[in-house]
Amino acid sequence: MDIFWAFVIGGAICVIGQILIDLTKLTPARILVFFVVAGCILGGLGIYDRLVDFAGAGASVPLPGFGNLLARGVMRAVDERGLIGVVTGGFTAMAGGVTVAVVFGYFAALVSSPGMKE
């Protein structure tokens, strides 16, 4: 059942993005920024975690889930370290995902050539 709801909610969030792209002429970069900021705000309000409880990966895998991760990380860091946590929590929370993407993206660029056809 959790797989079904991950599919439905994850798909629905993508539909919101698709409608924004088709109807507002927002570029994909702006959509991604919008989703991350929206996820961070909803995460700060404690709303997004409830969607994650319900839809699991359907809520955490789309980009608002990334924003929620940042909000959760910064609030946890504030609990542990006070004001210092304000400036460490966000980056700490995204460290794993961004490092994997940057390192593998870097090596992918090294081994494949631009305009290469399969």
Partner: peptide
């Protein structure tokens, strides 16, 4: 479209594609 842009895989693609 957005089905591949909005998930975290789209973020990874947005890093790798311009790098290549």
């Amino acid at each position: 479209g957005a089905g591949t842009i909005v998930p975290i895989t789209g973020f990874a693609n947005a890093i790798a594609a311009p790098a290549i």
